[in-house]
Structures are given as C-alpha cells and as structure tokens.
Design a protein around this nucleic acid. Sequence first.
DNA 1: GCATGAAAATGAACGTTGTTCAATAATAAA
DNA 2: TTTATTATTGAACAACGTTCATTTTCATGC
Lengths: 204, 204
Amino acid sequence: MAGKRETKKEELRERVLKAASEIIEAHGVSGLRARDIAERVGCALGGLYTVFADLDELILHVHSGTLKRIEEQLRGSVPEAATPRETFRHLALAYLAFAQDNRNLWKALFEHRLPEGAAPPDWHLAQQAFLIQLIAAPLSIAMPGANPDALAIRARTLFGAVHGVVSISLEDRFTGITPGHLEDEVAALADILAEGIAATRDAV
Amino acid sequence: MAGKRETKKEELRERVLKAASEIIEAHGVSGLRARDIAERVGCALGGLYTVFADLDELILHVHSGTLKRIEEQLRGSVPEAATPRETFRHLALAYLAFAQDNRNLWKALFEHRLPEGAAPPDWHLAQQAFLIQLIAAPLSIAMPGANPDALAIRARTLFGAVHGVVSISLEDRFTGITPGHLEDEVAALADILAEGIAATRDAV
DNA sequence: GCATGAAAATGAACGTTGTTCAATAATAAA
DNA sequence: TTTATTATTGAACAACGTTCATTTTCATGC
C-alpha cells in the first residue's frame, strides 16, 4: 500500500485548509487560532506545521480558494452579448454580492497582513490577474485606441474604484449605507464610470 | 502646587501618543508594542494603562491626529474659485499625496481592527464626517436636484472610489503602479467621475 | 513476516505578546 | 510633620504562534 503517507498528509492539508476557511468566515481572520484549527481537525498542535509553514501561508491558501470563487462568480455574472457598460455593471454588482455573501473571507483578502518586509508570493499575485483581465476586455472596446499597458492600468483603477466603495461600506469602521442603497450606489458608480470613460476618451 | 498630578498625567498621555504615532509611522501599526512605547517615553509598562485603557484606544487617538492632518491637507488643497470638477481633482490628488507621504499612519487608519464585536466610538465616526462634507459641497453644484441624503450617500461613494484606487496601489498586496502613473490615474479617475456625474445627472 | 531506517505525529515547552494588580512611591490635605 | 489619596511600578499572568525531542507510524529489504 504505497503512497499512504502522501495520501494522509494531503488529506490533513485539505482538512486544515477547510477548517481555517470556516473559522475565518465565522470569526474573521483575526479569530483564527492555531489551537482551534488543531482541535477541529483532530490533530496535534504541531501537526499543522507539517502541512503549512505557518499560519500566514495557510491564510494565503485560504485566499487562493476565495479568489477562485470570486473569479467563478464574476465570470458567471456577465451575459454573452453584454455591452461594455452592461459588463461593468454586472461585474461590479457581482463583486458586491460576493463580498456581502462571504463577508469575512472577502475581508480577510484585504485585512490580513504578512509580517513586515515579507512580500506575497508570486503565485498569489498571479491569481489576481483575472480581475484585471475581466475588466480590460470590455474596457478595450470602450477605449479603442489604448495600448494593452494603458488598458491594464486603467482596468486596475476601475477595479480599485468599485472595490473601494464596497470596502468602506462593508467595514464596520465607517458609518454604513443600508444594503439596498449600497447596491444602487455600486450600480450608479458603474454607470458613472462607463459614462465618464466615454466622455474622457480622447483625454487619455 | 495643586494640579501637579493632572499636569504630569496629561504630559505622559501626550508623550505616549506621540511615541505611538512615531512607531506606527516607522514600523506600521502591527509593529506597535506596549513595551517599546514604555521604554521610549521612559515609564513603566503599567503606566501606559493609566492614560489609555488599552492599545486599541491609544491607536484610535493616533487615528484622530491623522484624520485632523488629512482634513487640513484636503482643505488647503482646493483654490477659492475652483469649479466642482477642479475641486474633485484637487481633493483626490491631495488625498493621494497624504497617503504617499504618511503611508503607515494612513494605512493604520484602515488596517487596524477593533476586537470582534467592538464598534468604533462615536467621536471617531464623527471625525470622519468632514470627508463627506468636503465632497458633498461641490457635488451639490454638479447634482442640483438632489436632496441632502442622496448627496451624502453619493459623496461617500465618490470617496470610496478614490480611496479604493489609492488603497490597492499603496498596499504591497497587489502588483503596484509606479507613483507617477498613480498620480495620473487618480487625476483621470477624478475626471471620469466628474464627467460621469454630469452625464448621468438625470438618471439619479 | 520481521527487522530496520525514515518520516510523520505528538504535546510539552519556549519566547513574545497585551494586560493586571499587589506593593511601593509620590502627592495633596490636615 | 503626619496622614490619606492617588499614581507608578514591574513582576506575574494568560493567550498567542512556533519549535523540537520523543514517540509512533509507515515503507523497505531480507
């Protein structure tokens, strides 16, 4: 029965990842404790460190799963024959919906910090590329003359804009907007951006 | 010599606040340690807890100073006779400049979390109101028909949009834009928003 | 099957946090 | 000066993440 070691280890890794994801969604990333994970998956405290280097690495892998789910949800939100403006609206609202439905996992993406001086690994940065591409595609129609680099930069700006509105509304830090208003505002922002891009097209 | 007690206490409080602010700006809010503060101001560890309830309260007061400085910088950035569109641009660029020049203090505003379930005190929420008002004023000219509530909501949305772009660019989490491009992009976003608001005026 | 070496699992122990509190020192009042 | 408050002190505590000598489990060669 060869490979039993790897199988068990892989299985433990999956269970740890799942437990961490559930704890984060339930209590936020700051509520994630090594001892809680160990107890939940039924292994010793030290066992965690045989499948992940430390909690930071584990959290990065939770993020990885979250990003995959965001990608799915965004891709599924845009109808086939949507215009650029409709696409912006669908993407923005789908992003908001994911954040609302998976608040703590989504918040963890942005509120978790690596130790001072540690940069996120390349595979994690690469996984975020789809966001920019999803926006750059319709944008290239709205900005026919722009080169790919300019498109990528502008797409990141647009993502930042929508993300910012969702972000300060879902954080408890600021006085919030009611969920219904929030949807209207995100939709309004998507429209404003689409109109604004059309209007400033030649100013780029 | 009456009042010596209060004087000393007030003085300690100020020194603690200053030390905390300096440490945060130097090492980020996660680099703030009670023992470091105590050593720097030359008091015992327990002394900190005679002037602030805990580190969270201390950090909130650091935020307070940061917000005051942001308000100053934003108010000073808008020329007297600026049009709404010019105002948006000045405010957005001033916000970016503050974030770039005071990175860790600015980041601390958004990355520091209160313990689960604890809401920010009212005086802290109230201190953020100027941001909305600064934006709502020019917006009221660009959206002549809108009522004060709608203006406030839309102003928050616009702040969120600009904040989001600054935010994801200055975090190390995402692949960044070079500072020069960033300024261009924030200015471009301000213009896009101004144009978009004008174009969607009747759709509100 | 059994013995042997390698790998994984264990959990007590360590270092570093924020916070507390009995003991001490300093100040105001008498 | 004496006495009663009040502030300051820093050792001690609890809760973390992480490590590592020890034990247990598994794969391999006879």
